[in-house]
Write a protein that binds this DNA or RNA. Structure first.
Lengths: 211, 211
DNA sequence: GTCTATAGTGAGATAGAC
DNA sequence: GTCTATCTCACTATAGAC
């Protein structure tokens, strides 16, 4: 079963997603987690410590659902309707994996919306709180690297235009996802349109792809 | 001379850029503006009102420097080194105007850094504060529309690939600028790299262009 | 590890004079 | 329009029992 420490972190993510870092009340989190404020200070030392731990928690959760989505995508590619036996092994379609993974951040699931919002909040906070930066930087770099890998794979498989650095493409696409995500979350942009725009960017960056 | 009201708004932008919306202390702004807290409440009713007014102030300022930069760019294109008589009237180079305008946001000038930071902050805040949304939405839409216009002009002039919606391209490029800007400001990404990535995106979106 | 109770304070907001 | 003085209270953080 989830420890109280975990419950507190979950509650923290939820609260951040709901009212932002600035709106984060230690007492409120305690209530939501069914714990006391004392316990929060016991585990995390102070409010900033709680924030740090929450950021780590969010990265982990994002890693988990990314991995899971990729596994599902591979599964679907291999056994989905019309997919069976289409063209070989599961990793054949690096490009659609790339697309799926990026689109993942633009989805109206509770967990993902929560994660994205909290992530954006913490990213914004990191501009002013130096101790959040390292963590942020690490997580972003890992994400970019992973996407760069997919781009490179797609190029090898002839699903993407040659002559562009996978690193560059990956950095642009992930930054775009963040930009679109923030517009979506702030109500400036509809979800479907955001997703379409992202798909369009992938086409612009990688070319039309094998059709 | 600048009214106290104006001084307060200027101070607010500065403070937001320095320590974020979250770090915004009414008293601190008063001190920086050489005014009293009472006056702030007199002019803006409450903290949220101050924020709203500040957002408006930032949009105006951004409009102003964009217009100015465009004028300068046109001037430079017409009279710059080697530019004289190169190929006709000032508006000939919609594409480089587009590029210049977008790159404008990624510049280490005090005013621009301040504006970008404050803008990002307010955008992030708008996720939780509904009354900021309208203003944000309006300003963003105007920016996108203006960029879309440039894209369309570039297409007509044969400086950009046909067959893509100017609106889509503009929305992607501006969202990318926001994403890159936030990474830059949060120290995740170097300024020069951010600028290079943006230039790369323009090439990806518009094609190599006339060379 | 967990809770209750409470201390301490920072910052938003108001009243009223000039 | 502008200032000084002050009120108020919501939140962080700690102390100490279980």
């Amino acid at each position: 079963m989830a420890s109280k420490r975990d419950l507190i972190l979950q509650a923290a993510v939820g609260m951040i997603a709901q009212s932002g870092v600035r709106g984060l009340r230690v007492e409120e989190i305690a209530a939501k987690a069914g714990a006391s404020t004392g316990l929060i200070y016991y585990h995390f030392k102070d409010r900033a410590g709680l924030l740090r731990a929450t950021l780590d928690y969010i990265s982990d959760r994002a890693d988990r659902y990314t991995a899971q989505a990729l596994a599902t995508a591979k599964g679907a590619a291999a056994s989905g309707p019309g997919g069976a036996g289409a063209s070989g092994p599961a990793d054949r379609d690096a490009r659609s994996e790339l697309e799926q993974t990026l689109l993942l951040e633009l989805q109206d699931t509770d967990e993902i919306r929560e994660n994205s919002t909290a992530w954006g909040e913490l990213r914004a906070s990191a501009i002013f709180e130096t101790d959040l930066r390292e963590r942020l930087e690490g997580a972003t770099a890992a994400w970019v690297a992973e996407m760069a890998e997919r781009v490179a794979l797609a190029q090898e498989a002839g699903q993407a235009r040659e002559g562009v650095e996978p690193e560059d493409v990956a950095e642009r696409l992930t930054a775009l996802v963040e930009g679109l995500s923030e517009r979506w979350l702030s109500g400036t942009l509809g979800l479907e349109r955001a997703r379409d725009l992202l798909r369009g960017a992938i086409v612009a960056e990688l070319g039309p792809g094998a059709r």
